[in-house]
Design a protein around this nucleic acid. Sequence first.
DNA 1: ATGAGTGCAAAGGCTTTGCATTAGG
DNA 2: CCTAATGCAAAGCCTTTGCACTCAT
Lengths: 148, 148
Amino acid sequence: MSNLNNIEIHTAVHDLLHNAGQRYTDKRRRIIDILIRAGKPMLITDILAKAKDMPQSTLYRNLLVLEETSTVVRVVTNADSGCYELAEHLMGHHHHMVCSKCGVVRDVVVPEGLEHELDKALEKVARREGFTIDRHQLDLIGCCKNCK
Amino acid sequence: MSNLNNIEIHTAVHDLLHNAGQRYTDKRRRIIDILIRAGKPMLITDILAKAKDMPQSTLYRNLLVLEETSTVVRVVTNADSGCYELAEHLMGHHHHMVCSKCGVVRDVVVPEGLEHELDKALEKVARREGFTIDRHQLDLIGCCKNCK
DNA sequence: ATGAGTGCAAAGGCTTTGCATTAGG
DNA sequence: CCTAATGCAAAGCCTTTGCACTCAT
């Protein structure tokens, strides 16, 4: 499980983009900075609020590019707007607690032993069905501290 | 883990709605029938396609009511439209294999022991954060047999 | 110079809402 | 009867797209 510092992340992102023939522009760096600072998945609306001068279209287009280059991932939630975070190879493997009231998402780490056991069991079930697992996603859905 | 037959499901749904002061109307029965037949999560667009004469607003409003009465759950995906299935106490607890190529969703059951261990670990983590878990959702994301 | 990236505004698509009508209890 | 539920259309909201402009190489 990687735990890169900020500079290493920017370098890694630069390389990912560069290898895909993409430029690491100011706007893209800005987005990555915001995601690093947040340290958790962010709603598009929240990213826009942090990057006040950034046009929506620029953000949306850049998030697509960053997603295609495995720099960020879109976190699946049932919030109104999209939710993104840094890719696992930059952030480390983890899961999410999703508040079904306000949509906030927090990162969660479960014991490595359990994670390993889970992977083994899932692999077994998947093989039986002819399914190839790229990754698993585990979400805790419920109610956060602030919404009670 | 419950495994109700169709009639039992309808009876259970009737009771859930009735206890909440809601009626089990034809439209609601229709929606439940469609979800029973599918036996897997369905996109709103797919439900609309099956229930050709049903107005969107009726479907959306009824899905909300059914969700509030714990009859159906909204499955979190990153598909364009919402995705719903029968609640776990009607369907039994299970997880999903999601094909990232074609989007098909299959139900998966993991060994009960592992499930129990997982619940314990998640509960512990959640309590630490002041988060109340309603349910957990575990998705295997990868490539299905047909897409290889 | 030349194509990628950006900004603005308009269009698209899913979902919600208002209001008149219908139906269930 | 009387309120919940329905149907239709319009409005809302997030997201995508078109096109002209700017910037980096």
